[in-house]
Computed example of a mutant assay.
Amino acid sequence: MTDKDILSYYERSTCSVQWLEFNRALAAELSAGLPPEEIRQLFRRIGERVAVALPIERCDTVEQLRAGFNSRWKSIDWGFATLQEQSDHLGIVHACSPLAMAFGPDATDWAGGFFEGVYQTWFAAQGTPADLKVRADSSGADGLPQVVLRLERAPQ
């Protein structure tokens, strides 16, 4: 099986046919009616609400965080996360969410706001300092069905 076959399967199975055209029309209307940054903020707030509805238990290690995040994502079939500690940030890669397929490729930039909201809320609930912020890194996805984020100090 090739990477193309795998991606094709993923695309067909991540968004119910009954919702696909509705979601694509919603994305088109949002894009036509609002600037991208406002849509991103809307999706960030939606992500915050989802995180509150799906809290994770208290974690003491990065591995426990990863397991907690993935337990929640698995419960709603929204892919999975990997975490990687770097010298200046914590890298977060969220793979196989249905957002890319549901809203289409033109929504990729602002849909990342959803994951910023979810992960920021989950980190805040863990007691992460307020000056650490989750930001989507649009340069890191490489055309794959994933969102690359970073937890790092907010720019001054």
Rank of each mutant, 00 (worst) to 15 (best):
A28G: 10
F103P: 05
T2K: 06
Y119K: 09
D142E: 14
R12P: 02
S97M: 09
Q120C: 01
F103I: 01
F69T: 07
D77R: 10
R150F: 04
C59R: 09
V118I: 07
L65M: 14
A28P: 12
L54C: 14
V148W: 04
P105E: 15
P55H: 08
R153K: 08
A136K: 04
G113E: 08
I46A: 12
Q86S: 00
D3R: 12
Q126D: 07
T61S: 05
T108V: 15
L151M: 02
S71M: 11
V134L: 04
E63C: 10
Q84I: 12
D137M: 01
V147A: 12
W110I: 08
S138N: 11
A154E: 06
R24D: 06
A67N: 10
E11N: 06
L34M: 13
T108L: 14
R40D: 03
L20Y: 03
D60R: 13
S97K: 05
G117Y: 01
S75G: 10
V147T: 13
D131P: 05
S31G: 08
A136Q: 01
E57L: 12
D137T: 08
P129C: 05
A130V: 15
I46Y: 15
L26Q: 10
G91W: 07
V50A: 10
L149D: 02
A25E: 13
I46V: 15
L34H: 08
F22M: 14
V147Y: 14
I76E: 11
Q86N: 04
Q86H: 01
R66T: 12
M101W: 07
D3G: 09
D5W: 00
R72Q: 09
L132I: 05
S8V: 05
L132S: 09
N23W: 10
T121S: 07
R72Y: 07
F103Q: 07
D60C: 14
T121H: 02
G68P: 07
E48G: 01
A141N: 13
P36V: 00
S31H: 15
L34G: 04
G143N: 05
R24S: 09
K74F: 15
R66I: 02
